[in-house]
């Protein structure tokens, strides 16, 4: 029996993969199909591009009547509210409209005249909610869950696999990881962290036994101009990209927690380290000069099935 199956698919605008181990092939394909179905469900439900999605309906009704939302959507909105507070207003799910000013394929910084009307449409505190009815008060306002949708889908797929009995494997949605359990022999999966300045190279290899691992970086989308990196992570208050960090990786029990912690750390710029320290989770942050700041990596998280003695740690991180 093959030890592990790697099943690849396309989802949420990127590459997705399931690593399913210690089951036979039929079972692996069954599990993968159930997990893919769940990822697609979330993708379609919260897609900006599908007219019938809840997000499109909310955006189309901006400035108009309130829209009735279901329990899952309301809980995601609650989480977005927590993120707004935790980031001091820098993470705002209504900031997607700023996309119209920034075209990261062209190395051009928009002027304040271009940003001003768009910034007027950004304002999470203004989103109205009465019970299950949600309303965007001004025409042109938009919300989207692109900031943590992929991580949420990774957690849901991972929980589904775990609930169906999978004990060894992980879900990887374009770099947002939710590990269900270690390798069949109990050792950790070695997950490579991309080098922010050398495509194809790794800056570290992190051992993962269970839980979520996510990375936010300035290298995914953006351009270089005048010796400075302008990335796609925008501070919602100013509409301008952040620049203090090249990448931040966080390990937390949930992918959605890891992903939002890393994104908010990027947004907090020079206040990122106290924030990451206060979260209590392990992180690896690379500042604008390429210096590594980290806490506790490598090693297994405390408690539960993941606590098996890891194999003797290698003295230097090696690429997988």
């Amino acid at each position: 029996m093959r030890d592990a199956f790697r099943i690849r698919f396309q989802a949420m605008g990127g590459d997705g993969e399931f690593m399913i181990a210690a089951v036979d092939e039929t079972q692996a394909r069954r599990l993968a199909q159930a997990a893919i179905d769940e990822v697609r469900r979330i993708e379609h439900k919260y897609s900006r591009y599908r007219e019938d999605s809840i997000v499109s309906r909310l955006n189309a009704a901006a400035g108009g009547p309130a829209v009735e939302c279901d329990e899952e959507t309301l809980q995601l909105l609650d989480y977005a509210d927590t993120l707004y507070g935790a980031s001091g207003g820098r993470f705002d799910i209504t900031s997607g409209v700023l996309r119209r000013a920034w075209d990261f394929r062209v190395p051009r910084v928009p002027s304040s005249d271009e940003l001003a009307p768009l910034l007027a449409l950004v304002g999470w505190p203004e989103v109205e909610r009465r019970g299950a009815r949600v309303r965007l008060p001004r025409a042109g306002m938009q919300i989207d869950f692109g900031g943590f949708g992929k991580e949420y889908a990774a957690d849901r797929a991972g929980a589904l696999l775990s609930g169906r009995g999978l004990r060894h494997g992980y879900v990887n949605l374009a770099g947002d990881l939710r590990v269900v359990g270690p390798r069949p022999d109990g050792s950790a999966w070695a997950i490579g962290i991309q080098h922010p300045r050398q495509p194809g190279a790794l800056v570290a290899s992190l051992p993962m036994y269970a839980g979520g691992l996510a990375t936010s970086g300035d290298y995914e989308r953006g351009f270089d101009l005048d010796g400075r990196r302008w990335c796609h992570i925008l501070d919602a208050r100013s509409g301008m990209p952040v620049s203090a960090w090249q990448s931040v990786s966080v390990r937390a029990p949930l992918a959605v927690a890891a992903g939002t912690l890393s994104t908010i750390a990027m947004l907090l710029e020079d206040e990122a380290l106290p924030f990451l320290e206060s979260s209590g989770h392990d992180y690896l942050a690379i500042d604008r000069h390429g210096t590594l700041h980290q806490r506790a990596f490598p090693g297994p998280p405390a408690g539960g099935e993941a606590t098996r003695r890891p194999p003797a740690a290698t003295p230097h991180p090696t690429p997988t």
């Binding site: 775990s162 359990g181 029990p253 949930l254 405390a302 408690g303 539960g304 099935e305 993941a306």
Partner: peptide
């Protein structure tokens, strides 16, 4: 308290 991510075996 046992945290939710420590409950793999209990399932």
């Amino acid at each position: 308290p046992v945290q939710p991510w420590e409950k793999g075996v209990l399932a």
